[in-house]
Design a protein around this nucleic acid. Structure first.
Lengths: 147, 147
DNA sequence: TGATTACCGGATATATTTGTCCGGTATTTG
DNA sequence: CAAATACCGGACAAATATATCCGGTAATCA
């Protein structure tokens, strides 16, 4: 569904958000990678994308790390994360790969896929990182497999 | 959403199906690639997968080519094509990439994604190649961009 | 039977994604 | 100011997806 980069980006954002909401704790890369079960260096690249897009905040030096401001927790949606990493392609493009699939020249599945894609967009648009972080905080969601 | 290979595979199957239904015409690789706008050699690889999976029929030699039997037209679904090429991963795996995401240890988006994924599965399961081929035949769907 | 046709299958090439490494820079702390 | 910390950014490496090439094989037809 999403690229690995995007999966890591979402999980990392939620973890950072959870730690930020929970007494404003700033978290380092090592910690993030450990807690979401992702490759550290690759996760760093993904986070740089999110920082440049203004979706995550980073601070250098000792006591530095990543955090989400109160505003980011409240306003950044899953959709923004996905678009920043994977681009809008997957959320708009034709399921069968036609470059200009529309009502004018629809692919045979065009009208069947439309409602599903719309729901997916709506889903991503209506969930903030802060909300998802809360779920993890309450033990209602997990970012890694504990076995 | 789907891989390129899968997009080509679906479009090719529908085109073959349309030609098979329309007076049992058998079609060659060159023809297929031209009509759906795909790279010929790569499309051949994808079709081999579908032939091996029993979803498409091939005949060697002069007058040979690809075709869909009446039974294939009636019974082969989009889902079987997708699974044969991309595997079941995308239709079952966790949206956030957790290896064992379930009600026991759900990712924060687990319950939100479930209905969408279910609808997608249902969509693929309930559309046969024959049905989609009919749509193309009737000019209600296209497999390539005509500009 | 011999020539042609067209799919088959393996090897190879290219592009993209995924993942790593390491020096640079900003920041904190003693 | 000096040393340590931790993100930044570019180069590099590995894996996978995409795409091509070409000889092999089966089938048709003269």
């Amino acid at each position: 569904m999403f690229s690995k980069a995007c999966e890591y980006g979402i999980r990392a954002s939620i973890y950072i958000g959870q730690q930020s909401a929970d007494q404003g704790r700033r978290v380092g890369l090592r910690d993030i990678a450990t807690e979401i079960g992702s490759p550290e260096a690759f996760t760093a690249k993904v986070l740089q994308l999110l920082v440049r897009a203004g979706l995550v905040t980073s601070v250098k030096g000792p006591t530095g790390g990543f955090e989400l401001t109160a505003e980011q927790l409240r306003t950044v949606t899953l959709r923004e994360i996905v678009v920043a990493i994977d681009g809008g392609e997957m959320l708009q493009g034709c399921a069968l790969g036609l470059r200009q699939c529309s009502a004018r020249q629809p692919c045979p599945m065009h009208y069947q896929f439309l409602p599903i894609r719309d729901q997916l967009n709506e889903l991503l648009r209506t969930h903030t990182i802060g909300e998802l972080a809360g779920k993890v905080h309450d033990g209602l969601g997990f970012l890694k497999q504990f076995s």
